[in-house]
């Protein structure tokens, strides 16, 4: 057995050594981990009329017709390679599935990729945090203040702020934690988001 083990260890060492050497000799363009932007931040930039922002919707054309984030342009991931972009523009992408987003990021020219941001939870995040911000019936003054700001933003986009929501429907951290769409699936269902393939471990 030990001779087999030594042989296996040698194979592993050779493969690993070659891997290190290969990457040091001719480095592959480093994979860009997806960078995120929060829906409220995106909304703030759109409200300001930020001309350096280009927003792309990578879902199907039908979904786009049904509803899209204001100022978003519909695109297929591959199209992003050909879109003319001035230097200094920030690109934000949103979509249903990770593959489209990854392809979209990859389609962009290499030097732009680090400036591309993605909505972590896609349209659900926009709907839940910008379009329909929610305030619990027993909200604290801090939460009310945040909600007023969010409600003004929501009305700007033609949304519908929800006050007096039962506390159970406003998860802890909604106003302070990182954005999540855990409680927004009802809204997402209305917008024909594609089937979520369950990830997880």
């Amino acid at each position: 057995m030990t001779r087999l083990h030594t042989a296996l260890a040698l194979v592993a060492a050779v493969l690993a050594g070659a891997a290190g050497a290969a990457d040091l000799a001719s480095p592959v363009a480093s994979r860009q981990p997806l960078a995120f932007i929060g829906a409220p931040d995106l909304a703030a930039r759109i409200m300001r009329g930020d001309a350096t922002l280009r927003l792309f919707d990578l879902r199907t054309a039908d979904a786009y017709q049904q509803f899209h984030i204001p100022t978003a342009v519909h695109a297929a991931p591959a199209d992003l390679a050909d879109v003319p972009l001035e230097p200094g523009t920030d690109v934000v992408l949103y979509g249903d599935d990770r593959r489209a987003l990854t392809e979209g990021v990859r389609a962009m020219p290499a030097e732009r990729r680090s400036r591309v941001r993605v909505l972590r939870e896609g349209l659900s995040e926009w709907l839940g945090r910008v379009h329909e911000p929610r305030l619990a019936a027993d909200a604290t003054p801090e939460e009310r203040a945040e909600f007023e700001r969010a409600a003004a933003m929501s009305r700007f986009f033609g949304g519908m702020p929800l006050a007096n929501v039962p506390r159970a429907e406003v998860p802890a951290g909604y106003w302070t934690g990182t954005p999540r769409s855990d409680d927004l699936l009802a809204a997402a269902a209305l917008q024909s988001v594609a089937t979520i393939r369950r990830r997880g471990c």
Binding site: A19, A21, D23, L24, S30, P33, A35, A172, G173, G177
Partner: peptide
């Protein structure tokens, strides 16, 4: 939930953190 959502770092690899090529990371782990 506050703990659950704390310290998000995105989909990040060890080799992104220390900025070495992934082949070097593979060699190191091996």
């Amino acid at each position: 939930e506050p703990l659950y959502s704390a310290t998000p770092m995105g989909s990040i690899r060890l080799t992104d953190l220390v900025d070495i090529p992934s082949g070097a990371g593979v060699a190191g782990v091996t």
